[in-house]
Simulated scan of single mutants.
Amino acid sequence: MKIALIGYGKMGQAIEAIAQGRGHEIVHRIDINSPQLLEKENLSQADVAIEFTTPETAYHNILKCFDANVPVICGTTGWLDKLPEVKAQCLEKHQAFLYASNFSIGVNIFFELNRRLAELMGTQPQYNVHMEEIHHTQKKDAPSGTAITLAEQIVDALPGKKAWVNQHTTNPEELYIESRRVDPAPGTHIINYHSPIDDITIIHTAHSREGFAAGAVTAAEWLKGKKGIFTMKDVLSL
């Protein structure tokens, strides 16, 4: 499979190593110094594109992939106010798009655990829920996209929660996401339900970027040749 890497930072380089180890070819390594590679005649040389850039550039990069008729995997977070527009463009142009806030297989299983636990706790108002996420200091967005996905699952399931916030709150209808940035920390997400008599806690800790990179390559392998809008739930049959 021929892959275009849009974004060639630490994540792009980790994806490259995994992809080449599986026998795939990297036809383009696109970064801020090579915008010409996003043009249709260049991008169309790829079977699939994997996009990990910045919140400011992701939207336009994805549309470039649609124009080049190239399926695109996107792992950039912080731009989701434009997600409805991307989905509409994908369907209108009969393209393929897969977004995930986190491509790690372990994290996606963790999403399912979080959703189910929140459903169970929805009938237990004596518990109050708190979330903490820890990442390295170079991470540009806070809270993380993974934390937002987890928080939205909790807010959807708990009758007493109406929204999540990223600062300390005393409002019982708000879920507090505490964001910490320390080095080195590839990523830890902690969900804690506290009551006067006990605590229930679930934790996911990433040990390296390899899990995220491997999941992105798995998603690219799965997406090749498909049309439509997908998530990691589709890739993993969750």
Rank of each mutant, 00 (worst) to 15 (best):
K2A: 02
I3K: 05
I3R: 00
I3N: 00
G7M: 00
G7A: 05
Y8K: 05
Y8S: 00
Y8T: 10
K10S: 12
K10Q: 13
I15F: 01
E16F: 04
I18S: 05
A19W: 05
Q20H: 07
G21R: 07
G21C: 06
H24N: 08
I26F: 05
I26D: 04
V27L: 03
R29Q: 11
I30Q: 05
I30W: 03
P35E: 08
Q36P: 01
L37D: 10
L38K: 01
E39C: 11
L43F: 04
A46C: 05
A49F: 01
T53N: 08
P55A: 08
P55L: 07
P55K: 02
P55Y: 06
T57D: 10
A58L: 06
Y59L: 10
Y59V: 06
H60E: 15
L63D: 01
K64H: 14
V72C: 08
T76S: 14
T77I: 13
T77P: 00
L80S: 10
D81W: 11
D81G: 12
L83H: 10
K87L: 13
K87N: 11
C90T: 10
C90N: 03
C90L: 05
L91K: 13
E92H: 12
K93P: 02
H94I: 07
Q95H: 12
Q95Y: 00
A100S: 15
N102P: 05
N102K: 02
S104D: 03
S104Y: 06
G106Q: 12
V107E: 04
R115H: 14
R115K: 15
R115E: 13
G122L: 02
T123S: 14
Q124W: 07
Q124Y: 08
P125D: 01
H130R: 13
M131H: 06
E132K: 15
E133A: 07
I134S: 03
D141Y: 13
D141G: 09
A142C: 13
P143T: 02
G145E: 01
T146K: 05
L150M: 12
D156I: 00
A157Y: 06
A157C: 09
P159Q: 02
G160K: 08
A163V: 14
W164D: 03
N166Q: 12
P172G: 04
L175M: 06
Y176Q: 06
R180V: 15
R181T: 09
V182R: 09
A185R: 09
P186A: 02
P186S: 04
T188R: 14
H189E: 10
I190A: 01
N192L: 13
S195P: 00
I197P: 00
D199V: 08
I203Y: 03
H204R: 10
H204E: 12
H204G: 09
H204I: 15
H204C: 09
A206Q: 14
A206L: 15
H207Q: 12
H207C: 10
S208Q: 04
R209T: 11
A213R: 02
A214L: 09
A216F: 08
V217P: 00
A219M: 04
A220Q: 01
E221F: 08
L223A: 06
L223W: 03
G225V: 06
K226V: 07
K226D: 03
K227Y: 02
F230I: 02
F230L: 03
T231Y: 07
D234L: 06
V235F: 04
V235T: 03
S237F: 10
